[in-house]
């Protein structure tokens, strides 16, 4: 087992643990907005860690270029998807629960 294999294994397991945390988050958190935040950990850093770890196990030059493209695309598209879901969740009337401040609702 070389150093790259070891680093790849660590990255893959860290990324998988982020997925587990996100899964725990969508079960434990209490409204759609906090759940989107939990999924954001997996969709951003989680996938990046898993893919980089997979690359480190069999590194080639072409795959490195592809992984850089994947990271850029994944960060951009997961952000757009999260914004779209949050916006439609608000439009369908999901309340921001336990909020300490809310500028979209008139003051009580």
């Amino acid at each position: 087992m070389t150093f790259l294999d070891l680093a790849g294994t660590v990255f893959v397991i860290l990324g998988a643990l982020l997925f587990a945390s996100a899964a725990l988050g969508i079960i434990r958190f209490f409204d759609p907005y906090t759940r989107i935040s939990a999924v954001g950990t997996a969709g951003g850093l989680g996938i990046v860690l898993v893919v980089v770890g997979a690359l480190l196990m069999q590194p080639t030059v072409t795959d490195t270029v592809k992984v850089l493209l994947i990271i850029g695309l994944q960060l951009a598209t997961s952000a757009i998807g999260s914004i779209a879901i949050a916006r439609s969740a608000y439009l369908t009337g999901a309340k921001v629960q336990r909020s300490l401040y809310n500028d979209l609702e008139p003051r009580r």
Binding site: I26, P32, I36, V39, A42, I47, A89
Partner: peptide, 13 residues
Amino acid sequence: ADRVIAGDLLLFG
């Protein structure tokens, strides 16, 4: 909305 969010996580997984 919760279902859609879980579907998003399923896609990432």
